[in-house]
Simulated scan of single mutants.
Amino acid sequence: MMREPLDTTVADAARRYDYLLGGKDNFAADRQSGEQLRTAFPAIRTAVAENRRCLHRVVRYLASEAGIRQFLDIGTGLPTAPNVHEIAQQVDPDMRVVYVDNNPVVMAHARALLTPKPPGLTVYVEADLRDPASILRSEALHSTLDLTKPVAVLLFAVLHFIDDHDHPHQAVADLVAALPPGSYLAMSHVTFDPLPDVARARLTKLADPAAGHGTFRARTRPEITRFADGMQLIEPGVVSVVDWHPTDNQETRSTPAETAFDVFVARLP
């Protein structure tokens, strides 16, 4: 089946995120959308940068302290160094990483730019989180990861692009159900909870499908915590990305209101 031609006149979440991180793999529509979001929430570049830094800390924790040797990174987005496999393979060169995204442009960039150093193994699966079975039945996944041994599933900055009618909590539960005990789920998610009313109202208006920025569903901390049902939350629990195992000087850290991202790491008993 032929794919639809790439429409560069419509903003894309992955390319917009790349733009906000200072990347070059984006188009005018992505930059325009990013700037409209920045007008509503001036700290948005700080937010995406802090989210990325938190991802790095989480991967290091899982590899170094939790002993994880297999990662499943869903909603990987456009490559932004250092990437998950690069961080993990600094701990153990034998790390195995599967990247998953439903965006063919992301997958094309990933295959071209993400080159693992042997003996580690990295593969790329084009599948949709809204259909977890499409991920779990992937031959590439099963040839790379041993699902009888602990796996860390990463869902960073992806679930807020899935609306409630696509049952995101059930999708995550289905993924977790396929994992063996000792596996981990780590995720970050946009929340408007710490924002002042004015910023929250502006962003809520932009999140309307009619605004042309794509599907977007910020969630409250209790809604985010539900994704960890049946799992053991690792300290400090569900917190702002700037408060999860911070390494920066306390005086220079961003605030939860500047980041608007919550994060947690949870272990499957």
Rank of each mutant, 00 (worst) to 15 (best):
T215V: 15
N249V: 02
K205G: 04
I162T: 06
L155C: 03
V241F: 01
L114P: 01
R57A: 09
F264A: 06
F264C: 02
H85G: 09
D262E: 08
P236A: 00
G22S: 03
T46K: 03
G214Y: 01
D128G: 05
V125N: 09
L21E: 13
Q89V: 08
L268Q: 04
L37M: 13
T225V: 08
S240K: 00
A201Y: 06
F261T: 01
S33Y: 07
P196L: 07
L233C: 07
V10K: 14
T191R: 12
E251V: 15
A177D: 01
T259I: 10
A173L: 02
R96N: 02
D248N: 05
N102I: 07
R60W: 02
D229V: 04
S134N: 06
G212C: 11
R45T: 15
A110S: 12
S64F: 01
T115G: 00
V98I: 13
E4I: 03
K205L: 11
L179S: 01
F264Y: 13
V97C: 01
Y99Q: 04
Q36R: 15
A49I: 10
I87A: 05
A260Y: 06
V84C: 07
T8L: 14
P209C: 00
T8K: 13
T9K: 09
I68R: 02
V123A: 06
R57S: 08
L141V: 03
T46M: 02
E235Q: 13
Q170E: 12
A152M: 04
D193A: 15
S138L: 02
P150N: 07
F216S: 13
L179H: 00
P93Y: 03
D166A: 12
R217S: 14
A257V: 04
D146P: 14
R31F: 11
F264E: 05
P194F: 13
I74Q: 11
G67Q: 13
T76M: 11
R217H: 14
L114E: 09
E50Q: 12
D92T: 05
T259F: 12
A199P: 00
S254W: 06
H213S: 07
A171E: 00
D30K: 11
H56E: 14
A88H: 12
Q32Y: 00
R96H: 14
P150W: 06
A228N: 08
T9H: 10
A88K: 14
D243T: 07
P236S: 00
H245E: 09
A178F: 02
F71W: 04
A108G: 14
A157Y: 03
Q170N: 12
V97M: 02
T204K: 14
